[in-house]
């Protein structure tokens, strides 16, 4: 299946997936390039033990999750202020316009997106990883369980718990928005 693939081709085929997964998992563009390099270097070193019974993608997800976890630990040590996804300097959501909505709705959605990103970073590493793999990368429970080396039931539990935390954290915002809209309409 992987016949005649050079490592550089593998990198080219998967680099976008690795970058976006790392971006969501770390919540920062800072060191993204270095982290992605780390992911591929770890893959390169792991290739001798690669038996071909798993997809490279699954392997890469596992490595990306580990690299992101290491990055979180490093940040915790440094205690440096880092650029959040919701900071002005990053804001990848800015490039996702909704052409069919008016400016106010767009702004509202963008702010909500930023709030979700912010809350995502408050979840535990494992909850965040599972949510990103499930919702963003559209992996199945089985694939996530395989990539993270945990039972499917545990994946479901973490996913449910993570979404519940997000919901609880974002509920006041939704209520506030609704109240504001009602006040404006009066």
């Amino acid at each position: 299946m992987y016949a005649d693939l050079t490592f550089e081709q593998v990198v080219r085929d998967h680099q976008e997936m690795v970058f976006r997964t790392l971006l969501r998992l770390t919540g920062s563009r800072e060191h993204l390039d270095d982290l992605a390099q780390d992911v591929f270097l770890r893959l390169y070193r792991a290739l001798p033990s690669f038996r071909g019974d798993a997809l490279i993608t699954t392997y890469l997800y596992r490595i990306a999750v580990n690299v992101a976890q290491d990055e979180w630990k490093r940040r915790r040590k440094d205690r440096d202020t880092h650029t959040s996804l919701s900071d002005e300097t990053s804001g990848w959501e800015d490039r996702l316009p909704h052409p069919d909505r008016n400016a106010e709705q767009q702004l509202e959605e963008r702010e909500f997106q930023e709030a979700v990103e912010g809350q995502l970073q408050r979840l535990s590493h494992i909850e965040r990883s599972i949510i990103v793999l499930y919702h963003q990368e559209e992996r199945t429970y089985e694939q996530i369980a395989y990539a993270l080396g945990m039972p499917i039931g545990t994946v479901r539990t973490h996913l449910h718990r993570g979404r519940k935390k997000l919901r609880e954290a974002l509920q006041p915002r939704q209520t506030h928005e609704r109240n504001a809209t009602c006040t404006m309409n009066r």
Partner: peptide, 24 residues
Amino acid sequence: ARIVRALETTPKPMVPPDFAARLG
């Protein structure tokens, strides 16, 4: 639904064009 929509919005990070070659 809003949360799921936000989570399913895929970020489009800029991958440096020479990333694969540089890594190689």
